[in-house]
Design a protein around this nucleic acid. Structure first.
Length: 220
DNA sequence: GACCAGGCACATC
DNA sequence: GATGTGCATGGT
């Protein structure tokens, strides 16, 4: 089977088995942006607490956070962990949004995807996964998000080399699938779901023969 | 009481 | 260029 068909088959199997994952459904773009930073190396349930704090304090907006002292912001996002670091990163990003786009997220909507990605990546604290999460989940761009689970799953299904880097893995999905935002959204979430249930604690797939691993999408 | 979670930047070798 | 380390909380 060719790669595009294989990738689509995996997607269909995952969707059939787990159903839609509802990642970031119907939330404001800014909430998604904040969440993308807050979730770095952090369980999502802790991120939700931090976001709830921001909402309760009425500061879940670029303008409000722009004006806040880093220490005050840090205190609100404390449940998400790495709070001093993430306070700085969030403010770095928002500072940029003010400098480049006047603090207006709608002004970013017209920026070409590649340019927007470069802009995000140039912010200290925004790496490829965070940038791509923002592009896909906040701005609806057809960008495939790669994370550690994606790498493990792709590798263990013979779709990528163990040493494949972020760009290569992203190219695998983007070059072999139609640029469908809704599918990219769901596919990434499903790969994380699969990874959590079957690939936890396994550091990539080096030396693991596919047949012997408990990773089968069909569940056996 | 470990171990993990929807990373990233920086130091060091 | 690869590898190691700090960042920090809350759930299992």
């Amino acid at each position: 089977m060719n790669t595009p068909d294989k990738l689509m088959e995996i997607y269909e199997l995952l969707l059939g088995r787990f159903g839609p994952q509802h990642w970031w459904p119907g939330e404001s773009p800014f909430e998604v942006i904040a969440g993308a930073v807050l979730t770095q190396n952090t369980n999502w349930t802790n991120v939700e607490k931090a976001i709830a704090n921001l909402k309760l304090a009425g500061v879940l907006s670029p303008g409000a956070i722009h004006k806040m002292a880093p220490a005050s912001l840090a205190e609100l996002i404390r449940p998400a962990g790495y709070y001093r670091l993430k306070s700085k990163r969030l403010k770095n990003l928002i500072d940029r949004i003010f400098d480049e786009y006047g603090g207006d997220l709608t002004a970013m909507e017209t920026v070409e995807t590649g340019l927007l990605r470069q802009a995000l990546l140039s912010v200290a604290g925004i790496g490829p996964e965070t940038a791509d999460s923002i592009l896909l989940y906040a701005f609806g761009r057809p960008v495939f998000v790669i994370d550690a689970y994606t790498a493990r799953v792709a590798c263990r299904h013979g779709l990528a080399e163990p040493e494949a880097d972020y760009a290569q893995l992203q190219d695998l999905f983007q070059s072999n699938l139609p640029p469908d935002v809704k599918m990219f959204n769901e596919y990434h979430a499903l790969l994380v779901r699969l990874g959590k249930e079957h690939c936890r604690r396994l550091p990539r797939c080096v030396g693991c023969p596919l047949e012997r691993l408990p990773h089968n999408i069909n569940g056996d």
